[in-house]
Design a protein around this nucleic acid. Structure first.
Length: 261
DNA sequence: AAAAAATCCAACCGCTGTCCA
DNA sequence: CTGGACAGCGGTTGGATTTTT
């Protein structure tokens, strides 16, 4: 027997929300608070599914939702976080104040993924001749996410792994920039350990933040995963509970040795 | 000016994890 | 332990809008 539907769909409205519906939902939540989404539509006098109400609230009506274009700082951060976290839109959104997972997902799909593909095509074509990497063994999740502090809902932590990078005293832009800087610092440190005399390795380990990191040379010292040009999904064969956004130099060395073997 | 194609994005769908009886 | 209810997440869809031909 299948699971019961989340709501009785017969007679429910679908599609775009009207201003009247928005007002009903807004005033109900302002009076009664969030939650109980299943019961909310009936109580609020809305002919909508509870899930639809929740989505409308989270993505549009909530007061802290930031509207307008994604700034270059935000875009930069999205790229970096996506390289680290993959399609964990809610986690990425957690580092972008006022942005929703849906908005970031849409922005990625419509702006950045295309860019990503283009960059890969032009910059990384030579990588197709490289040795085949080992296929992933497990799920699509990154093999480790030690940069995620489980007690603080996915906030990136400092190298000591304790304090969240997002500080409440910072402005939103400062928060975005801080996170970006931390990721850049990690990568710069990782880069400094590379032997840049090897041309192929230099190409493969281009640590400038551009789009090839996500697909071409993913995870060295960062512990995330990616795909090679044949579409094989990879993950890295280690676990390290002590690293943050990525630095574990011993593991990096092991990774380099493994790649070059 | 009109048609076609491309792009954008709000909303939907189905699945998973958690809680609780 | 099991199963239902619910919240939340990520993938996908479809219609509105914009751009191109």
């Amino acid at each position: 027997m299948g699971r019961a539907p989340c709501c009785e769909k017969v007679g429910l409205r679908r599609g775009r929300w009207t201003t009247e519906e928005d007002n009903l939902l807004l005033s109900y939540i302002q009076a009664n608070g969030e939650g109980s989404w299943r019961a909310l539509p009936k109580n609020a006098g809305l002919l909508r599914c509870g899930k639809s109400c929740r989505l409308r609230w989270i993505n549009y009506l909530k007061t802290d939702v930031k509207r307008g274009n994604i700034s270059s700082e935000e875009e930069d951060l999205i790229i970096k976080l996506h390289a680290s976290l993959g399609n964990k839109w809610s986690l990425i959104a957690g580092h972008l104040p006022g942005r929703t997972d849906n908005e970031i997902k849409n922005y990625w799909n419509s702006h950045l993924s295309r860019k990503n593909i283009a960059q890969n095509t032009t910059k990384c074509r030579t990588s197709s001749t490289k040795k085949t990497r080992k296929p992933r063994k497990t799920s699509s999740l990154p093999s480790k996410q030690s940069n995620i502090n489980p007690s603080s809902d996915g906030l990136i932590t400092d190298p000591n792994g304790t304090s969240p990078l997002i500080l409440s005293t910072n402005t939103e832009n400062e928060q975005v920039q801080n996170i970006g800087k931390m990721v850049e610092n990690d990568l710069a440190t990782a880069s400094s350990s590379m032997d840049d005399s090897n041309e192929e390795k230099e190409h493969e380990c281009d640590w400038d933040w551009d789009f090839e990191i996500d697909k071409c040379m993913v995870g060295l010292g960062l512990g995330f995963e990616g795909e090679n040009f044949d579409g094989d999904v990879l993950s890295w064969p280690w676990e390290s509970p002590t690293t943050h956004v990525g630095l574990d130099m011993k593991k990096q060395d092991e990774m380099i040795a493994w790649l070059m073997s």
